[in-house]
Write a protein that binds this DNA or RNA. Structure first.
Length: 266
DNA sequence: CATGTCGCCTGCGAGC
DNA sequence: TGCTCGCAGGCGACAT
């Protein structure tokens, strides 16, 4: 069992960093030599003006429309108080109030870059709507999912139908909606149910301060509480909370997936 | 353009 | 108990 920072975990960190960063200038910075992390030092001298989030990306904006774009990858942690004895410290920033921020990442799947004038590339450039925005509607979800015949789970992980869903919340949302994750064509009523489920599981994740399984800790080094509310993810071999059927596990397009063979239908 | 495959990383659990 | 081996997984590069 592992865990990955998804939207609720990144939002939890965003809320904790915001009051510590806004209005603070960067007086020094350092990074691991990998080009995945060296952009961390590019904004020395600039002042943070906003701490935003898009999907699983943190956008730390400074006063001249540049942004530090940070993705936590699999094992990334971003927190106040850089630990310089941590062998996995990949980047750090020192602020004009003397505080430090550290980015620690065991597996180095995380990534830091600088964006200019809100121009993005890669996944960030094609990200779907934020799940809590008015633009994320059942109709949008239906049309987005119908535009591709890939497995439902794969589409959700692509970040295009909606931003911020990873393996945990994809499984949880499919379970709540009663839809098999390998479905390729979804009906309008089921898209509406899935829309409700996505918003619900992500909102619950945020309200619980994120999910802690093994790797994830929030900006203050605390764990979240959402792992106590998971109905599906990581519970293969255990009984379904709704019907008692043993939950099944397989891979869909290479991603481990858990589902209830009774409650979730194609 | 849509889709599919591979590589990046390293700790750790399964199995012997 | 001690060891090896392969899994886990979001994203981006690349091929078709």
């Amino acid at each position: 069992m592992t865990s990955v920072p998804e939207l609720p975990e990144v939002e939890t960190i965003r809320r904790q960093l915001e009051p510590r960063l806004v209005g603070r200038a960067i007086v020094d910075a350092g990074s691991h030599p990998s080009p995945k992390f060296t952009p961390a030092i590019e904004l020395v001298g600039a002042t943070f003006e906003a701490v935003r989030r898009r999907g699983k990306f943190l956008l730390l904006g400074v006063d001249d429309d540049r942004e530090l774009v940070i993705h936590l990858g699999m094992t990334g942690r971003l927190r106040p108080g850089a630990d310089f004895d941590d062998p996995y410290l990949r980047a750090w920033w020192r602020l004009d109030d003397g505080a430090t921020i550290g980015f620690s990442d065991v597996r180095r799947f995380g990534r830091i870059r600088v964006a200019y004038n809100h121009r993005y590339d890669g996944t960030l450039a094609v990200l779907g709507p934020e799940p809590f925005d008015d633009s994320f509607t059942p109709d949008h979800l239906y049309r987005s999912l119908r535009s591709s015949s890939r497995h439902l789970k794969t589409q959700l992980l692509s970040q295009r139908p909606v931003a911020g869903v990873g393996n945990i919340y994809a499984d949880e949302a499919c379970f709540r909606a009663g839809i098999h994750p390998a479905t390729r064509r979804i009906s309008r009523p089921r898209a509406t149910a899935l829309h409700e489920a996505i918003v619900h599981v992500l909102r619950q994740g945020v309200d619980n301060g994120g999910t802690t399984l093994r790797d994830y800790l929030d900006a203050d080094g605390r764990s979240g509480a959402n792992q106590h509310h998971l109905h599906c993810y990581g519970r293969y071999g255990e009984p379904c909370v709704d019907c008692g059927t043993v939950l099944r596990r397989s891979t869909i397009d290479g991603r481990t997936t858990t589902w209830c063979p009774t409650c979730q239908t194609r």
